[in-house]
Design a binder for these strands. Structure first.
Lengths: 187, 187
DNA sequence: GTCTATAGTAAGATAGAC
DNA sequence: GTCTATCTTACTATAGAC
């Protein structure tokens, strides 16, 4: 063959990374296969050498994105983990979905996708929640924390930038610190 | 004219109601104008007598849906308000987006829409948050509560039905009751 | 494996009859 | 105001050359 044996999986990896960023930014179903492939430096014809359908790509994106997020949240110390959580509720995260968490950006589209995509999501969320359990008392609080973080970013992004958006992030941050039993920061 | 003077606004109201349900279920950008109009018992040609573009419809849906939600949350007594909140975190709400809250269903698409849509969302959320302020101590907690509710439904819907989904709703419900200073229910 | 080219369908939006 | 019919563009997916 004219390509190295590792070429295909490397290309697929680049594909999933590039299309993941674009999907988080513009939305998955709102983005065409042409645009996805252009973002990865290829043309649409090559797409189906890697995926049987567009839906299969979403499945791969979900698995890849949640794996990346799980690595981020698996911080070695509690203080580092807290910094990651504060960053999650930052204006920077709200303003840059393309480099942020896939959950607030894609969850409703995952909910409308097939069972395979939802199961990929469940598996990814399991790994994520494991990191959260190390920070709070029990399972229920870990899920509450996940919901708090995701909901705040979802609502903040739908609001225009301004005081309301800031208030959502501020309110969620305080509640998060309460949930974690940490004293609220000044600044 | 061949139609009653009130016909247009009545038709527009039916249109916004029917398309709102469909948008919440299938996604706004994933649904075509043809499908939207069919849901309202009309054909696509009539659409542009009511809206200048598809985006303008989303704006109208957002305003209408949040107004309906604000009425729901403006419960007369605290106990009734609590029942509404528990219903928000119910399996029924997760399983029926078409008759549920527009925020978890459409927020990411609102975030990607134009400034006009985001401002319609901001106005609607202002009315909603006013109802929440009556239930908690301060402004920050009201936003935290909103985030908690929205995030739990967003995450629960993306998960397949099963123990993980139930745990998300359960965890968020407990956290909500803590936030409201209410004792946790048995059952 | 990736390209160009294209089939076939569906999208958003408009025109003209009633 | 709503219909049918249509324009134009974009979509998902496939075919065949390299």
């Amino acid at each position: 063959m004219r390509y190295a044996p590792t070429h295909k999986e490397e290309a697929r990896t680049r594909l999933v990374e590039a299309t993941g960023a674009l999907a988080k930014q513009k939305g998955f179903s709102a983005t065409g296969v042409d645009s996805f492939m252009a973002a990865a430096g290829m043309t649409s014809g090559a797409f189906y050498a890697h995926f049987r359908s567009k839906n299969e790509l979403l499945e791969a994106i979900v698995a890849n994105e949640l794996q990346r997020s799980a690595q981020l949240f698996a911080a070695p110390t509690r203080e580092q983990a807290l910094e990651v959580l504060r960053g999650y509720l930052s204006h920077a995260h709200v303003e840059h979905p393309e480099s942020g968490c896939a959950v607030p950006a894609l969850a409703p589209e995952i909910a409308r996708a097939g069972a395979a995509t939802q199961h990929a999501f469940e598996q990814g969320m399991g790994a994520l929640q494991a990191s959260f359990r190390a920070l709070v008392d029990d399972d229920a609080k870990a899920w509450a924390l996940v919901s708090q973080l995701v909901g705040a970013v979802v609502v903040a992004r739908a609001l225009p930038s301004g005081p309301a958006r800031a208030a959502v992030l501020e309110g969620a941050t305080r509640q998060m610190e309460l949930l974690l039993g940490e004293p609220s920061r000044e600044s």
